[in-house]
Amino acid sequence: MDNSMKMRAKMQGDVAEVKVLIKHVMETGLRKDKATGKLIPAHFINQVNATLNGKTVLDMQWGVAISQNPFFGFKIKGAKTGDKVAISAVDNLGTNFYGETVIS
């Protein structure tokens, strides 16, 4: 596991609130390099999957308009303290990202 992902999962009543931050440039492919005048190639996370105790709860498809160092939050009903939330992500160049945390 690398440290490119920060996660927090907390119970609010019977719903777990999960917040995730992934370190990534999220380059659109539409920006020009000021020095060379050439387009900077697109480089962005495009698929993200969230699981609760190994079972998918949320699948995401992203385009280039998700902000740099993506943040996302979601809610899981029926989760409980101690349950495991895991995030897998992959970018358009095939780099994988993974993070997991325990609900508090």
Binding site: L30, T56, L58, M60, G63, P70, F71, G73, F74, K75
Partner: peptide, 27 residues
């Protein structure tokens, strides 16, 4: 985002237990 060069920003698919809610930051 209607006037972005490519308007679709993200698509979210909910399964078991996920509330129909999402928060994120967009360009």
């Amino acid at each position: 985002a209607e006037k972005n060069p490519n308007p679709l920003v993200a698509d979210f698919f909910f399964s078991d237990g996920a509330e129909p809610y999402v928060a994120t930051h967009i360009k």
